[in-house]
Simulated assay, not measured.
Amino acid sequence: MTPMRIALLGLGSVGKGVAKVLANPEYGFVITAAADSKSGVVAPAGTTLDMCEVFARKNATGRCGDSAWSAERIVREAEYDILVEVSPTNAQTGEPALSNIRAALMRGKHVVTSNKGPISIAYPELSATAKEHNAGLMFEGTVAGAVPIMNGLRCGLAGNRVNALFGVLNGTCNYILTRMEEEGLTYQQALAEASDLGYAEADPSADVNGTDAAIKLVILANTMLGMNVKLDDVIRVGIDGMTADALMMAAKTGHTIRLIASIHPEKRLLEVSPRLIHKEHPLVVDGTLNAVTVDTELAGPITFIGRGAGSVETASAVLADLLALKERYDGK
């Protein structure tokens, strides 16, 4: 079967992971176009990109190609079967990813994305556009990295009513709380350590104030649970006021504190806040791991645990979506 052609937008950590994974010809995909925020490159008809050369050029010049091929032009004019959109998230507007995804779907092109912005802001619209143009829209990588929470809900737990969902959805916060508990570090010391190790962004505010986890809750609520909520509907309390003393006091009773994101569909209640939980609870994971417990009608509580971020880890979720699309549309 002819390999499906990929246009890859976003050449940061996740983009590198995707390119690395798709280099394996057994998966049946080739990259024929790529773009960063400043430039793009398109392979001549009938050929594919050498992504090693593309990344070498970007490392040397700061651009993957030339300005003649922007990401927007690639989406609208290049020949490809699937748009893989893995650029950084803009939680306020979803742009420019939102416009690029919309334009690809309107061309009848499939889309796989790990970008939380467009899915949290405009999922109903994008889903309707995909259906109208017979295109697939997949986004497993937007929540919990390599953890297959959406595929688990969609397929493995199909038919189950979800009574509640609880999760540790931000690895940066979990790492900070773990280190504060293990070593008695202050919040500022643990945050500095997380930054030094690359677990925290240059501006970590969206992580530590609960915004990142809240965005992921919105995606789960709207795409998996049929709700229609926005970021402002999520009650948010971050961990920036946490103290080592609070964690020490919790430990005396066999408990700890984790930033827990939760959904109660019937109450339409979404919340992100630090919570006291017993150390034996399955959501008590260490370091940068993510964990999600789904309380279901028939199967009872099911917990998913795994790496919630990372280059190859998120690429794993992207690959799963690509393979699902390939099977569904049979390369057409």
Results as ranks from 00 to 15, higher is better:
9 L>Q: 01
11 L>A: 01
13 S>W: 01
13 S>C: 05
14 V>S: 03
14 V>R: 08
14 V>P: 05
15 G>A: 05
18 V>K: 07
19 A>F: 00
20 K>N: 15
20 K>C: 11
21 V>R: 08
21 V>E: 03
22 L>N: 02
23 A>T: 04
23 A>H: 11
26 E>I: 08
28 G>F: 08
29 F>M: 06
32 T>H: 10
35 A>N: 01
36 D>I: 10
36 D>L: 06
37 S>V: 02
38 K>A: 09
38 K>D: 05
40 G>C: 07
41 V>C: 13
42 V>D: 10
42 V>Y: 12
45 A>F: 03
53 E>P: 00
62 G>A: 13
63 R>A: 13
64 C>E: 13
64 C>F: 12
64 C>K: 08
66 D>C: 08
67 S>F: 04
67 S>A: 15
67 S>M: 10
68 A>I: 11
68 A>P: 04
69 W>E: 10
69 W>I: 11
70 S>Y: 03
70 S>T: 15
70 S>N: 08
71 A>K: 00
74 I>F: 08
75 V>G: 14
76 R>N: 14
76 R>P: 12
76 R>K: 15
80 Y>M: 11
81 D>V: 02
83 L>V: 10
83 L>A: 08
84 V>F: 02
85 E>W: 00
85 E>S: 04
86 V>R: 05
87 S>G: 08
87 S>V: 03
88 P>T: 11
89 T>E: 13
89 T>S: 14
94 G>Q: 01
94 G>Y: 02
94 G>L: 01
95 E>A: 13
102 R>N: 03
103 A>P: 02
104 A>Y: 05
104 A>Q: 05
104 A>P: 07
104 A>H: 06
105 L>F: 11
